[in-house]
Design a protein around this nucleic acid. Structure first.
Lengths: 315, 315
DNA sequence: AGGATTCCATAATCACCGGTTATGATGAGG
DNA sequence: CCTCATCATAACCGGTGATTATGGAATCCT
């Protein structure tokens, strides 16, 4: 019944004292004001403006509208300002969820870049394994999920989780075999997995364990998993203590101290992909886009070649 | 850029959780919501709604709009409620100005009627002589002026004051000659003004004095005005004291005690008209219309035959 | 799985709101 | 008394914002 335009007109009349100057103040012509007032009057069924001679003044009802106009228009302006602030990266929020081992280097570097580039947006970070972070994304509790996928291995099961989502490849994370420094193969240039079929194995998170089993299966043996821990530092500790061998991604090896163990590249090599995941719509939110760019930059990836498909995803 | 309709839609989506139910809640169809959101999005240049699968949820920017919508829509509703209250006589204001001698009976009775009929409207009353009250009306400081005009006499000078104004005849107020009870003519059935040319006269307000002079002039004499006072009670006191004779309207005689004087009808009779005056626009304001009706009723006039022209105004 | 359902998007259409220019009526002022 | 300033009105017209009809895709149920 009453809209913002009408209030704006009433306020202009109250401020300016005539239709003509109100029209000038609003950038309209005089007849626009004239019939706007008439429409408002027949809509509300009240007399809003008293025409006396060639001057006009507001009636009580008109003054009521003009008075309310101040508050309403201020609130509208405030809303508009907030929106443009979000659009201009002078405000906004990004909720980031990343898997634990990325928290060491990738995420801190990303947050630093974001903070330096857009100091006014607020970033929330939560650690979560890929299945949970993707669920949060789907659920609307998260804007960007940093996930990983083992090449060839569990891409299939992740695939359905990624439907309707967009991914950006951040980096390839090579998986290495970690053995005690005193191990007979410690000095080898590369490790063939079959040579370690008799070892005791230290497995990581469930999906990492799955990857180990998958690799071992193609190498023709079934690994003897003696320990399981999601904590990579603990894994390295166990290896250091000579209790077994483990598959550990480069990302961890670059961040954690591991002087007393040997890290051997696998032959054939095995990698996992580090991915940034979001939804098609969120991708267009400035703060989210900035976060994605920062992630790519922190990972050393080319931001432009980002929306590529997963390597190894079935064509 | 942002209008009330858009905010209403965003709030409905936030409340209902889907376009379809938001459309139902607002009484629209689903495509209306769909393209309303799209318009808002391209107007603000931001993503307001995140479409994930077949569910939708608001982005941060969308939540900002939905949040502001609450306040804005509440303010709009409040304004609308105030307007309808004024239109429905459940609120409103009437500023009444009346000449002093009408304050005795006419105005109190009017206020009583108004109070009984519309207890929620606030009535302001100020005493003012017709020239000032009409000036206030023109100036926007008054809604209804109760004025008087002597028949044939000063209608002309009042006429230009009444241009652009509307008048309602409330009553005819007959003017009587007041003489001391001991006066030789005290028992006469009617008084011819010429018979009192030798008396000392007690004049009232400037315009009443003018009326006296005008009547005396047509009767062929120039009255000896010994006293002037705007206070009719004082006039009656002076007559009672035998200090002169006076012309006093019925309206005063009906209200003030005057036992010891004689009141004689003039021959030819002379009347003044009691008028309610307002502007054409204010006439259509419910509270003002109610006040006019109450005035007519208090004066015993037929409210329907009210907008008549002044008697004696030049056709 | 696969089919039914449900939700959103799009296209085509159309009414009307809300602006414009042109013009007229009228009160105010020199 | 004439002129100017102001509001009202008419005619026109584009864009907003609704509608119906239809399609596509995700979710749900069997």
């Amino acid at each position: 019944m009453i809209d913002a335009a009408g209030l704006r007109v009433m306020k202009a009349i109250a401020d300016e004292g005539s239709f003509t100057s109100a029209a000038n103040a609003l950038g309209f012509t005089q007849p626009a004001i004239s019939q706007m007032v008439r429409r408002l009057e027949q809509r509300t069924g009240t007399v809003l403006v008293e025409r006396y001679g060639r001057q006009v003044r507001l009636t009580e009802a008109g003054q009521v509208l003009a008075r309310h106009a101040v508050g309403v228009l201020a609130a509208l302006d405030a809303a508009e300002e907030e929106i443009t602030a979000i659009a201009g990266l002078r405000a906004g929020r990004v909720r980031l969820q990343a898997f634990p081992s990325s928290s060491a280097t990738l995420v801190p570097r990303t947050l630093a870049i974001l903070k330096a580039r857009h100091p006014d947006i607020t970033v929330t970070f939560t650690e979560a394994e890929p299945p949970e972070s993707l669920a949060a994304l789907r659920n609307g509790d998260c804007d960007v999920a940093v996930a990983f996928a083992y090449e060839g291995g569990d891409l299939g099961e992740l695939e359905e989780d990624l439907s309707l989502l967009v991914t950006r490849r951040l980096m390839d994370d090579e998986v290495r075999l970690v053995v005690p420094g005193t191990h007979p193969h410690a000095g080898d240039g590369a490790a063939s997995l079959a040579d370690f079929s008799g070892e005791e194995w230290i497995a990581g998170c469930p999906r990492c364990r799955g990857h180990l089993l998958s690799l071992a299966d193609t190498a023709g043996f079934r690994p003897n998993v003696a320990f399981e821990t999601e904590d990579y530092v603990a894994q390295l500790g166990l290896v250091t203590a000579g209790l077994g061998v483990a598959l550990v991604p480069d990302l961890i090896l670059n961040a954690a101290k591991h002087d007393e163990v040997a890290t051997l590249p696998l032959s054939p090599a095995s990698r996992r992909q580090i991915l940034a995941v979001t939804t098609p719509d969120l991708q267009r939110v400035p703060a989210v886009a900035a976060a994605l760019d920062a992630l790519c930059e922190a990972a050393g990836a080319d931001p432009k070649a980002s929306t590529a498909e997963l390597v190894g995803a079935k064509a």
